[in-house]
Design a protein around this nucleic acid. Structure first.
Length: 584
RNA sequence: GCGCCCGUAGCUCAGGGGACAGAGCAACGGCCUUCUAAGCCGUUGGUCGGAGGUUCGAAUCCUCCCGGGCGUGCCA
């Protein structure tokens, strides 16, 4: 069970994988939505009632209400008394006793049935079975909308991810970012944001020029010439294949590499690679709303305009013929060049212009998913936006570490330029989208990911992705057998009284909070963990409890419970971009 | 040198101030006349990299050290 990560105000010293984070705004209670979860809301309400009767002011900032770790600790535990004691200099257990006494006076069958003091001052809360069952009824009422909310209030949010240079096929490494970005986007959609997925194309500049020249070299090789791939150019085999494709289109000339050749080969290379990238993304089930071309920024004068803006805010200075960003004065890691001494803008300059453009397109929030190697640049862009007076909450970076491939026990870093990589397409050919997505998302972003190729290829039976999907399948199969399609809203849930059944309901109750925490903390792996946990609980339950053949009302109640499990599994898999099969 | 990330069971990893540290895989032992056994149950397995410190309480926060990764470009 993942104990959901607590949200913290943004601090530069906070979790570095979340350079900035924020609280969703625009709360709207019209839609199914919870402060925490259905049950925690109940507990929280009764606790504050009790607290108020004691004359204490609820300081709810750091108090925790969470599922108890052991049965004798009840259903939920809170550290409220210990926090309160610390604030007021009182003795924790005394505060806890006063609180439980106050709770005893308001105990309602609808909620907390019993409260006990334990340990250093925990208050353990026992919920009535009816109360727990009411969470199930609420879940069933939400149906396929369970876990969604309108907290985002329709705020326009852009998630920018992958944004790989069109200089080579997507690698396994890009795959991680692709899945991470896509799942983050899906999470924010669930939270009621108006989300756009954008891919930024660096289709201008030195890298694509080098690509064009590298392609041209391969092209000349077809005529028996032997030429050097330029310094920093692209060595990969894929350009040899491409040269063969391109030859009949561009003809036999082009003996020298000049401005014309550059344009022709660049257009060929960029178009072909971009098409390939889109196909790869498609194979992963990722669809972008927008592909944004860097070239348009230059063409439309956005880069000049951004520089002008920075100058007006006294954020730049001239030195050694170059224009520098005063990044350090605005919280950046390092002053950096914006305009080279030869007059060409740097990547950072263009990136600043790009973000100005995002802002002018009306996005209130932007999440950039990037690899950890962009750390310094990120602080520079942030510094520039700060200098321009753009609110801190506008831009957040979701940073992830790299993927290494593990094969035959050896770990290898990949490099597109050196032509040393395993393509995403090759991987997808062998493992399948669902498993790839699960592998990519199941690790926290800030941890390095060793993608074990042998395991992924050979061990599809033992992997968690299959385990979760199988749980969904078993439930679907049961409903087919039972010939039941819908659950009546007023089904009698009273037969659900076994400990396992109530535990299962409590677990399902956590779903909305898991989604929200995963989104806010940029931690999609929490959803993967949670889904696995639910699947595990289901399998254990399903093995011990029969459904068909029991008394009529028991069948109905258990089907209702399993329907709820199916909803949560299907919703989880959906957010992760995985299929929820009806049969396997 | 400086900045950031990681170090938890044999392996891959969750947990990021709370009560005896969790899961999957691996190993060992059980469970199919019954809703998919692609499953379940049990056992074995840990100086939470190390040392100090803060706290009623530290795997979690602070300092230092060790090991691995990424940065520290007028590359992107």
């Amino acid at each position: 069970m993942p104990s959901p990560r607590r949200w913290r105000p943004s601090r530069s010293t906070g979790r570095a994988s979340v350079v900035e984070t924020w609280r969703p705004n625009g709360y709207d209670t019209a839609m199914p939505t919870y402060e925490k979860t259905y049950l925690k809301d109940i507990v929280s309400r009764e606790l504050s009632l009790a607290q108020r009767s004691l004359g204490d002011v609820a300081g709810t900032s750091t108090i925790e209400i969470r599922p108890s770790e052991r049965p004798e600790f009840g259903d939920y535990s809170t550290n409220l008394a210990m926090i309160e004691a610390k604030a007021s200099g009182r003795v924790p257990r005394k505060v806890a006793e006063a609180l439980t006494a106050a709770l005893a006076k308001i105990l309602s069958a609808a909620g907390i049935a019993k409260a006990e003091v334990a340990g250093p001052g925990f208050v353990n809360l026992f919920l009535s079975p009816a109360c727990i069952r009411s969470a199930l009824r609420s879940l069933l009422a939400d149906g396929d909308e369970y876990g969604s909310s309108q907290r985002g209030g329709g705020v326009r949010l852009q998630v920018e991810f992958v944004s790989s240079n069109p200089t080579g096929p997507l690698t396994v490494g890009h795959g991680r970012q692709a899945v991470l970005g896509d799942v983050l986007a899906a999470l924010y959609e669930r939270l009621g944001y108006d989300v756009q997925r954008e891919y930024y194309f660096n289709d201008q500049g030195r890298q694509v020029d080098l690509l064009a020249e590298s392609l041209w070299v391969r092209y000349r090789e077809l005529f028996g010439e032997s030429r050097e791939i330029p310094e920093g150019g692209y060595q990969g085999e894929y350009l040899k294949d491409m040269a063969v494709e391109v030859r009949p289109i561009v003809g036999a000339g082009h003996k020298e590499f000049n401005a014309d050749t550059l344009m022709i080969f660049r257009a060929q290379a960029v178009t072909r690679i971009s098409d390939g990238i889109r196909k790869d993304l498609d194979a992963l089930g990722i669809r972008f709303d927008s592909f944004f071309s860097e070239a348009t920024l230059h063409r439309d004068g956005k880069v000049d305009a951004a520089l002008k803006g920075l100058r007006a805010h006294n954020a730049v200075y001239d030195e050694e013929g170059a224009v520098w960003l005063r990044a350090e004065d605005f919280g950046g890691a390092k002053n950096s060049v914006l305009i080279r001494s030869d007059g060409r803008p740097t990547y950072v300059m263009v990136d600043i212009a790009y973000h100005m453009d995002k802002r002018s397109r009306g996005f209130e929030r932007v999440i950039d998913v990037q690899g950890a190697d962009h750390q310094v640049e990120q602080t520079c862009v942030k510094a520039a936006l700060r200098a321009l007076g753009i609110p801190e909450t506008f831009l957040s970076y979701a940073v992830h570490q790299f993927v290494s491939l593990k094969q035959g026990g050896a770990v290898q870093r990949m490099s597109t330029r050196a032509g040393r990589f395993v393509t995403l397409r090759d991987l997808l050919g062998e493992v399948g989208s669902d498993v790839v997505r699960y592998f990519m998302i199941s690790r926290k972003p800030e941890a390095h990911l060793d993608f074990d190729l042998d395991l992924a290829k050979s061990q599809s039976l033992d992997n968690p992705a299959t385990y979760i999907q199988y749980a969904h399948t078993r439930i679907a199969s049961l409903f087919r057998k039972a010939g039941v399609e819908t659950i009546s809203p007023d089904v009698d849930l009273a037969p659900l009284e076994a400990r396992e059944e109530l535990e299962l309901i409590k677990k399902l109750d956590l779903f909305p909070e898991v989604l929200e925490t995963a989104a806010i903390s940029f931690a999609p792996h929490l959803v993967a963990e949670y889904a696995l946990d639910v699947a595990r609980s289901f399998h254990a339950y399903y093995d011990r409890f029969r459904v068909l053949g029991e008394a009529e009302r028991v069948i109905a109640a258990r089907l209702a419970l399993l329907h709820a499990v199916r909803i949560v599994l299907a919703r989880s898999l959906r957010v992760l971009g995985m299929t929820a099969p009806e049969e396997m």
